[in-house]
Design a protein around this nucleic acid. Structure first.
Length: 152
DNA sequence: GCCAACGTTGGC
DNA sequence: GCCAACGTTGGC
């Protein structure tokens, strides 16, 4: 089983929004970065766990845990001209972008702030804490996963 | 709101 | 294939 981290802006789609969905499950659409797409399309499997991370907010940090409940399938929002993530170059017959379904497992007891993660040498290799990182979906090693949870 | 860092695009 | 220009991300 692999572990992951999903970034989202809480003003757009936060953990409370996921919690409000039926069965606390939703598709993770809108990823428009090839590296992040490849992780989802090629490497994520049902049963994998992920951190839910709030970005671009007052206190960015890890707020919860999700589970992958459906493996990658075409991201239909790329075909919708009305959608903010519309991509005219994604052809329904040969989709360019993919998404997975995630289910909320639980909120963390507290937000683990980015600043705190950055201060921990044990996880200095996490892409999340590296300068200039812009991946919205990234892998997390088992060791990093366990360490982050130990901070909760 | 600012701006550094990054990925993508397109001219050549 | 190079690289400047541009748009976006995301911390602060």
């Amino acid at each position: 089983m692999a572990c992951w981290l999903f970034k989202s802006e809480p003003d757009t789609f936060g953990i409370e929004d996921l919690a409000a969905q039926p069965r606390q499950t939703d598709h993770w659409d809108g990823v428009r970065n090839y590296q992040a797409r490849n992780f989802m399309r090629d490497d994520m499997t049902v049963g994998d766990l992920g951190f839910f991370y709030h970005s671009n907010t007052k206190e960015p940090g890890i707020v919860g845990i999700v589970e992958i409940v459906r493996a990658a399938y075409p991201d239909h929002t790329a075909f919708d001209p009305e959608d903010p993530h519309f991509d005219p170059k994604s052809d329904p017959d040969e989709p360019r972008w993919f998404m997975v379904d995630v289910k909320l497992v639980r909120r963390l007891a507290r937000t683990i702030p980015l600043a705190e993660l950055k201060a921990r040498p044990e996880i200095s290799d996490m892409p999340l804490v590296r300068k200039g990182n812009r991946l919205s979906v990234m892998p997390v090693t088992d060791e990093q996963w366990a360490f982050v949870l130990s901070l909760e």
